[in-house]
Simulated assay, not measured.
Amino acid sequence: MRQDGSVTDALDPDALDPADMREQYRTMELTVADLAPEPVEQFARWFKETAASPAIHEPNAMVVSTATPDGRPSSRTVLLKHYDAAGFVFFTNYGSRKGRELDANPYVALLFPWHPLARQVIVTGRAARVGRDETVAYFRTRPHGSQLGAWASHQSQVIESRAELLARYGELAARYPEREQVPVPPEWGGFRVVPETVEFWQGHENRLHDRLRYVRDTPEAETWRVERLSP
């Protein structure tokens, strides 16, 4: 431990100290007047710009945070597959940790970490399963190998080894060769996150970031208002 109380890595004297890392963000001011009337329209603007940036790998990658009914949180990276005025959609095994937690506690947060652009989008809301027809339609667009993978992986369950996973995949590949239709696993499907708040974060120097958040006064309200948060 240092004299100032911070802890260093005793095994590696050359270890980097996160406290010593600094970056000054330099971007244009984000004002309420810059925003679209609806948060999904504003998300579409930023998503288009992000997807066009070579600095961003997988712009649809988002951190999905869930919690158990007694408040124990968990997070993981998931790919956004669709968004519109009704919400943000991703797919998973319903028996996975996030699937089980969302079934028990539908409150969820999504974070899009577009750090090279000094931008983030944070969505909070409630998740609900999408209809089976929507799940089947999306599943049919997945590559053949990904369809097999959805069957092979009992997501979040403990397995003995990677060899066990590969063996299951091999059995499925033999049963459903390329160009043969793979049925949709019954425990696999989508969640739609219906937003209650959507925050657009843009970084600035000296931690004076812009944080503009769309909120509804009531869950039933059709219109959104925007509030500025202190960074």
Rank of each mutant, 00 (worst) to 15 (best):
A55E: 14
A55L: 13
A55G: 00
I56L: 11
I56P: 06
I56T: 10
E58M: 10
P59F: 07
A61Y: 00
M62V: 12
V63T: 14
S65E: 06
S65L: 06
T66P: 06
T66S: 11
T66C: 07
A67K: 04
A67R: 04
T68W: 12
T68R: 13
P69W: 00
R72D: 07
P73D: 04
P73S: 08
S74R: 13
S74V: 00
S75A: 15
R76G: 09
T77P: 00
V78L: 12
L79D: 06
L79C: 05
L79Y: 10
L80N: 07
K81A: 07
K81E: 00
H82T: 03
Y83I: 02
D84T: 01
A85R: 14
A85N: 12
G87R: 12
F88V: 01
F88C: 05
F90W: 10
F90I: 07
F91E: 10
F91V: 04
Y94G: 08
G95R: 15
G95E: 15
S96I: 00
S96R: 01
R97A: 12
R97C: 01
K98G: 01
K98L: 07
R100V: 14
R100Q: 14
E101K: 03
D103C: 09
N105D: 04
P106Q: 06
P106A: 01
V108I: 13
L111S: 07
L111D: 01
P113F: 08
W114L: 10
H115C: 00
P116G: 05
L117R: 13
L117N: 04
L117I: 05
A118C: 08
R119S: 04
Q120Y: 02
V121H: 12
I122M: 12
T124G: 09
G125V: 14
R126N: 03
R126D: 09
A127C: 08
R129L: 02
V130F: 01
V130H: 01
R132T: 05
R132Q: 09
D133S: 11
T135S: 15
T135G: 10
V136H: 14
V136D: 13
V136C: 04
A137C: 01
A137T: 13
A137V: 02
Y138W: 11
F139K: 00
F139P: 02
H144T: 05
Q147N: 11
Q147G: 09
Q147V: 04
Q147T: 08
Q147A: 07
G149Q: 06
A150Y: 09
A150H: 08
W151H: 15
W151T: 09
W151Y: 10
W151L: 14
A152S: 14
A152W: 12
H154F: 06
H154N: 08
Q155V: 01
Q155F: 05
V158C: 01
